[in-house]
Design a protein around this nucleic acid. Sequence first.
DNA 1: ACGTTTGTGGGTAAAAGTGGGTAGAATTCC
DNA 2: GGAATTCTACCCACTTTTACCCACAAACGT
Lengths: 161, 161
Amino acid sequence: MRANDLETIGNSFTGSYSYTLDAKGRINIPAKMRKALNPANDRTFMATRGADPCIVLYPVEVWQQIAAKLLSLNKRRALHRHYTRNIARYAEALQYDHQGRIALPAGLIDYAGIGKNVKIVGMIDHIEIWEPERLEESDNQYADQLDDLDTISDEIFSLPL
Amino acid sequence: MRANDLETIGNSFTGSYSYTLDAKGRINIPAKMRKALNPANDRTFMATRGADPCIVLYPVEVWQQIAAKLLSLNKRRALHRHYTRNIARYAEALQYDHQGRIALPAGLIDYAGIGKNVKIVGMIDHIEIWEPERLEESDNQYADQLDDLDTISDEIFSLPL
DNA sequence: ACGTTTGTGGGTAAAAGTGGGTAGAATTCC
DNA sequence: GGAATTCTACCCACTTTTACCCACAAACGT
């Protein structure tokens, strides 16, 4: 096993939690997720826009792998520069305080349409922060595509281990 | 992890910030970016024209790698000399003061079309300084190429880490 | 039941962002 | 060459924002 694999074992996030954003824009990170975060990350997540309309938190270790891929793009190509810009510009490192909270940037709060209540969802290697109604809408949107979900399951689990 | 990758961890810039140019042509560097800049750079960035119509700031360490590549070009080929000239002629070392500001050269301010307000964008290994409307125009320019951007995603994230 | 952890609220000192003054260096002009 | 002028690095001042701390009630585990 490579050292890199070992580091990542801790960073496994699951479960769904309801929390509240306080007046200062801070939000609690579930204790279980704080414990799951590898200490090498120094209590720090990279927050950015999700592909879905929510906020995504990556352990810095995971983000560094994303950043490394962005650096591998050809800087002479305008489209590649734009691609990097659109990912990097919304990303910000957030370290949680001794109460276990992070302060979400206003831009990301707007993007996710977050008010006072939020849902925090574990996504194995990262975490999603949703406005509760949006999450529900998203769920409904896929409720009539259950067959497709089965297909994805088939695809994933038929892969060689 | 190679030594070169390790160096880059410190000089990793993200996020986008709105700042103002003061009457003396000075602009603040976001605190998070100042902290991200490796101390070996002695609070100094190399500023030059970007390939896009904005100002680009490189940590001197990163600039030195660019300079090394330019040196490796064939000095007997006119096109190569022209390429080197256009990068080198506008480059200037800028050290930020104890308030965290750098003084932007007038030539670069003109090139980027900067007035009072600017957007500072992290690009992982370097920083861009944009006139806000130009950045928006640039974004719109790529709005109809979402498929191409998805293609980039597929290409780089399907590769093994 | 009781001590401990967790989630939430809020106060305060420090840091960040912005504006402007000034003295010495560099430049210009007679 | 020397005086006048511009430039620039450095400093001080002010306002806003952030980071850090204390507090407390609810939930949890034993």
